[in-house]
Design a protein around this nucleic acid. Structure first.
Length: 497
RNA sequence: GCCCCCGUCGUCUAGUGGCCUAGGACGCCGCCCUUUCAAGGCGGAGAUCAGGGGUUCGAAUCCCCUCGGGGGCACCA
């Protein structure tokens, strides 16, 4: 039988890296086995729907390269793939379970359930439904009350004894006593299914063979097994993935936790990583490695290699902290491996985000200057910003090296200006020769002089190599920038010179 | 409170009874290169395998207990 797996997000927020990793593992597993990867949208909670979330999930998945064989926009033989469009199916299945004697109608009000829970908590007893309607409402009475328009839910008759056991592909044998499970709701009073019902019905109808999902579902898996049995269906295989923790290993990967821990990182959604200039292939490689390992040395994998090597047995059951530094390093590696043309192309959107309109020729020549010194595309765009910016507006404290006076720097820059004006050729070699000579004549350390010029010309202390940068900028703009830096220094009150 | 899961360097991990005086990677430190920042090269620190008991000739690996961390207990997913 062919492998069929699914990723089933709820459109209640943007796609989180944790969700992305779940999707990735499912996708890799499907591709490895030549099976199908299905995308199903679980939007049965109408109160928590977030506008734009579905689009973000689809976009993020596509950006990562995780294409789906069946699902929204592509269709498939078991559709529709959006649960809100399958309501009739769940309703029919829930009622069928009642007819089979495995489920029952419950008319308990929310107030009664709330009171019940409070009492249980007060007595420090396990909370859960007390099965009132299972024992006290006959099928005939139930029919009468439904006909009279009374709201109801459908609950599963959970066996009172015995244990439910399943073999998890990551965690091994897991078993739970049935008496610790209450008669959970299958169909809500608004006619919508709960996650449990919709999930099981769809996984069965869509012929899902392996359910790979987040760890947090382990406690409800026995319920799902019970549901499969009630229907008389064969349950799929389960593999529960450990969650991704914040970099400290304490707390979830969320904006709030990151902030509370005083971290510099802020990205938690796939779109955040995209905005910061991470390459999708680097994120994929990194994500594959959090919670999974192939051997004791391989770290860099192409997608094809990942597909070839991926195996559930390599999944670590331990929750993993998200290591931003390693992701940065890996992104740098991927950037360095890009062809210059590819890097130029990928950089463009980030330059445009800075409000720049780069000319391709300059960009092409600038790439070799930054390729090995950036970790993200955004960083690359920022590093090249000076090439197209109208005014780089250096700040005084960057312009004046420690231990120097503004007046000194003014003299240096003026001398530099003079030297460059008459330069026959405005090339890297000519610039270097001229400015090294100048440093010597001035009796200044080359590095110190260069830093002042660097800041004057680019507005920053961290830049691509100076002479290449100036050559790229061109004589005219270089001189103009030196002039404005000199003017800035002239404005310093004489007492501070 | 009840139920479940997890526990090897700061972090990601290799390890499935002897090859482990525990290997790799990120990060960190030092040196080299160097016009800034990187990249690169070389070297280094860093884990009594959560703790305690067993089993065994032999345990990070098997068993038990304890501790610590996480998750679940909704007409949310």
């Amino acid at each position: 039988m062919s492998v069929r797996v699914r990723f089933a997000p709820s459109p209640t927020g943007f796609l989180h890296v944790g969700g992305a990793r779940t999707a990735l593992f499912n996708w890799l597993f499907a591709r490895h086995h030549g099976g199908q990867f299905i995308l199903r949208i679980e939007d049965t909670d109408r109160k928590r729907l977030v506008p734009g979330a579905l689009e973000d999930i689809l976009d993020s998945l596509r950006w990562l390269g995780l294409n789906w064989d069946e699902g929204p926009e592509v269709g498939g033989p078991y559709g529709p793939y959006i649960q809100s469009q399958r309501l009739e199916i769940y309703r029919e299945h829930a009622h069928r379970l009642v007819a089979m004697g495995h489920a029952y109608y419950c008319f308990c009000s929310e107030e009664r359930l709330e009171r019940l829970r409070r009492e249980q908590e007060a007595r420090k007893q396990p909370t859960g439904y007390d099965r009132f309607c299972r024992y006290n409402v006959s099928p005939e009475e139930a029919q009468r009350r439904i006909a009279a328009g009374e709201p109801f839910v459908i609950r599963l008759k959970v066996p009172l004894e015995g244990t439910t056991t399943f073999h998890d592909l990551v965690h091994g044998e897991i078993s739970v006593q049935n008496r610790t499970q209450d008669d959970f709701v299958l169909l809500k009073s608004d006619g919508y299914p709960t996650y449990h019902l919709a999930n099981v019905v769809d996984d069965h109808l869509m012929r899902i063979t392996h359910v790979m999902r987040a760890d947090e579902w382990i406690p409800s898996t026995p319920r799902h097994i019970l549901l499969y049995r009630a229907f008389g269906w064969e349950p799929p295989q389960f593999a529960h993935l450990p969650i991704i923790l914040s970099p400290t290993g304490k707390g979830k990967m969320s904006k709030r936790v990151l902030q509370e821990q005083g971290r510099w990182e802020t990205a938690v959604f796939v779109r955040d990583f995209r905005e910061e200039g991470y390459l999708p292939e680097a994120l994929v490689n990194f994500l594959a490695l959090t919670g999974w390992a192939y051997d004791d040395k391989t770290e860099l994998f192409t997608v094809e290699e990942l597909i070839e090597k991926f195996d559930i047995s390599g999944i670590n059951p331990k929750p993993a902290a998200f290591n931003y530094e390693k992701l940065e390093w890996m992104n740098g590696v991927y950037i360095r491996r890009l062809t210059p043309e590819a890097l130029a192309e990928r950089l463009c959107p980030y330059l445009e985000d800075l409000g720049l309109h780069p000319d391709l020729e300059t960009l092409r020549r600038a790439i070799p200057l930054i390729q090995e010194r950036i970790k993200t595309l955004r960083e690359g765009a920022e590093m090249l910003e000076f090439l197209w910016k109208e005014d780089v507006s250096p700040v005084l404290e960057d312009l004046v090296p420690k231990g120097s006076a503004p007046e000194q720097v003014r003299v240096w820059l003026t001398e530099a200006l003079r030297a460059l004006e008459g330069l026959p050729e405005f090339t890297h070699e000519a610039l270097e020769a001229a400015l090294r000579g100048l440093a010597e004549r001035l009796g200044v350390k080359a590095g110190t002089l260069f830093m002042a010029i660097r800041v004057a010309v680019t507005g920053r202390r961290v830049t691509p190599p100076l002479f290449e940068s100036m050559a790229l900028l061109g004589r005219q703009r270089t001189l103009t920038r030196l002039e404005s830096a000199i003017r800035l220094l002239e404005q310093v009150p004489s007492s501070e010179r």
